[in-house]
């Protein structure tokens, strides 16, 4: 019997979108990205720190973000990710998509 794999695409896709959003503000290293997401969401969104790197590398392969090694404020070597023009477009696409989805969900929940 085939056990259906949980469709993780939505979750993963959401993380991707959040990463793109964070990077659209400024270039950032992996740890910073996860911190930023937690801070901004007041800890509501807990990033699975490990799977963050899978997403980052996948987004790099897709050409939406790029990375280079830089120095932190404490002069430590870290890999900084930044949004590429293609990533900017993708962020637009995903944001629209998300708005439509969350709007729909809200409307359903708003039924009285």
């Amino acid at each position: 019997m085939v056990v259906p794999k949980p469709d993780s695409d939505m979750i993963r896709g959401t993380l991707d979108m959040l990463i793109l959003k964070v990077l659209s503000l400024e270039p950032m290293h992996g740890w910073g990205i996860s911190e930023r997401i937690q801070q901004v969401s007041d800890g509501a969104l807990q990033v699975n720190q490990g799977s963050l790197y899978g997403s980052l590398h996948r987004l790099t392969r897709q050409g939406w973000i790029a990375s280079e090694w830089g120095r932190t404020e404490n002069n430590r070597r870290a890999r900084y990710y930044r949004l590429t023009p293609a990533g900017e477009r993708q962020l637009g696409v995903e944001t629209t998509h998300w708005d439509r989805l969350s709007g729909a969900v809200e409307r359903v929940l708003g039924l009285t």
Binding site: Q49, G50, S51, Y53, G54, H57, R58, R61
Partner: peptide, 18 residues
């Protein structure tokens, strides 16, 4: 612990390399 399975995630990153 928070990172959760260093090697597994490295593997995920590698997978992302294709």
């Amino acid at each position: 612990v928070r990172f959760g399975g260093v090697d597994r995630h490295k593997e995920a990153a590698r997978e992302a390399w294709g």
